[in-house]
Write a protein that binds this DNA or RNA. Structure first.
Length: 203
DNA sequence: AGCATGATGGCCT
DNA sequence: GGCCATCATGCTG
């Protein structure tokens, strides 16, 4: 797979990533739930929920770079979350990885996540997905298409997808930019942000 | 320098 | 369904 295939708008990139395989530190997993984010106010995909929306900062700099890189950020002080940067270099867009099926390396995942966790929940939720695969903040900016890199991405076949609003965002809360593979138990439940306006209110 | 805010997760009833 | 721990980030002053 070449990075050029990811130089596309974030929802199309999100659809492309469903069914892709992520390989990291002894674990292989199939991506089954993602969310698209992108842009700045006057850019191609304006999205008030995106980290990039208010312009480049040290934290979100990778989002403005070339596609195919890993963008990590810390959420609520403790969880690491992972995105695949998409869109042409110079634009800001990314796909948040929200859930995956663990295909290989489950024993290693259990060292990281614990023995009590149900199989379907091992990599359910963006923070849990990173914990399961051992993705850390130090991996921010690496090239996911480099076959010798620590975190690698391989596209899979096209899978059926369903879409709906993104989880936990307070702005553009109705925009259906979350995509998932139907009927997979690994997909997380929808939660609307308590700070979001009532459903149906304009963005 | 202080403060409000989460692209969360786990535990409670 | 609800609650809240916990802290990096970025905005305001």
């Amino acid at each position: 797979m070449s990075a050029g295939r990811l130089a596309i708008e974030p929802v199309a990139a999100a659809r492309l990533l469903l069914g892709a395989t992520l390989r990291c530190r002894g674990v292989a997993a199939t991506i089954v739930e993602v969310e698209a984010y992108g842009g700045v106010p006057d850019g191609p995909w304006p999205d008030p929920a995106a980290h990039s929306y208010r312009g480049p900062t040290p934290r979100n700099a990778v989002m403005f770079g070339p596609p195919g890189r890993l963008y990590t950020y810390r959420s609520y002080g403790m969880h690491v979350c992972a995105n695949v940067v998409c869109g042409p270099d110079g634009t800001a867009a990314a796909v948040l990885l929200r859930a995956a099926v663990v295909d290989a390396g489950e024993s290693l995942v259990r060292v990281r996540r614990g023995d009590a966790v149900p199989r379907a929940a091992l990599a359910r939720g963006p923070g849990n997905l990173c914990a399961a695969l051992g993705i850390a903040m130090a991996d921010n900016g690496i090239d996911l298409l480099d076959p010798s890199g620590p975190v690698r991405l391989e596209l899979g076949g096209k899978l059926p997808d369903q879409s709906g609003p993104r989880v936990g965002v307070s702005r553009a809360a109705d925009r259906p930019w979350r995509l998932w593979v139907p009927a997979r138990p690994e997909v997380s439940a929808y939660r609307r942000s308590p700070r979001a306006p009532a459903p149906g209110a304009s963005d």
